[in-house]
Design a binder for these strands. Sequence first.
DNA 1: GGAGTGACGCGGC
DNA 2: AGCCGCGCCACTC
Length: 116
Amino acid sequence: MGKDKQDFFEKVYDLVRQIPKGKATSYGAIAKALGAPKSSRVVGYAMNHSHTYDDVPAHRVVNRNGVLTGKHHFSASDAMQRLLEDEGIKVENDQIINFEKHFWIPPLSTGNDSEN
DNA sequence: GGAGTGACGCGGC
DNA sequence: AGCCGCGCCACTC
């Protein structure tokens, strides 16, 4: 019945909203947290529609290399970088410095979490 | 309905 | 260690 893929999109947005300020994660990490490590591209595609939600900090989502691959999709060419730097994340050459230090691992939304 | 594309990731060379 | 190519999944033409 309904909600199949759309539910996946909502999960992506919900997960991105949980990204704390000053932190960032990758598309693959989100996809993996949702149980679909191979759907990393779909996550990126979902982020493309994130403009419908102003609660989704898409600027905190970068690729596995910490590169701001989606910066071109923002209002300004340097909007994404500016937002990250405003949160204390150093960005140079469209790439996050010490990305692993700012890397945020998303919680597994398998359904039964009850963990802490 | 087949073919191409994309805000990715990984393996091979 | 960097460059090239393939795979995956959803969407559009």
